[in-house]
Amino acid sequence: MITFKNVSKRYPDGFVALNNVDLAIKSGEMVFLTGHSGAGKSTLLKLLASIERPTSGVIAISGQNIAQLKPAAIPYLRRKIGFVFQDHKLLFDRSVFDNVLLPLQISGFDSKSMATRARAALDKVGLLQKEKSMPIALSGGERQRLCIARAVVHRPAILIADEPTGNLDIAYARDIMTMFNSFNQVGVTVLIATHDASLLENTQHRVLSLKQGRLAA
């Protein structure tokens, strides 16, 4: 599903964020990506979303080399991926429901199936009762769940989460991990970047650890 071959990313100021990274994530796999801040986690995720391009190497998603993607093709790559952002990136001028609707509008679903899918996604994260609320009225945990609903509403093949349990208490964090597990069980490839050691305890899933831009074994 996702392969990195000799991927390096060096920023214009000379900082090397990723250094010859090789990795392969199979379709339907759930993988944790861990490391200290500055280890290259965010860079790796940005490369996957084509927000940044690697300095060298090949990144393939479903066999497509995204390191050489034309700008016009980037939106279609991003539609295959659901993103859970660390800072949520919600739109505060529209309701919870309309926030979840946005990816569907972007992908061009018809109006009828949009509402059904949006409600289904809100139901999965337990926010159906709040569909008319504004994001400003939501708690931190609810905002995170809204962000997850928006990430999965268009049923992407890949789900990428950046510090999804960042500022949440343990109970909330466990809820959210249960959600990710359930998405993975229906076949979604899940990649979670986190430095939260408690998430990694007792996990059966693969853990990739980045240290100074290199993948540790």
């Binding site: 016009a72 991003r78 993103f83 739109l91 001028d93 972007i106 992908s107 928006r150």
Partner: peptide, 16 residues
């Protein structure tokens, strides 16, 4: 600005 940036992140084309 925010709306445009987020829309681009989740796959909006320029024409959208």
């Amino acid at each position: 600005r925010d709306e445009i940036e987020i829309s681009k992140l989740i796959g909006a084309t320029d024409s959208f």
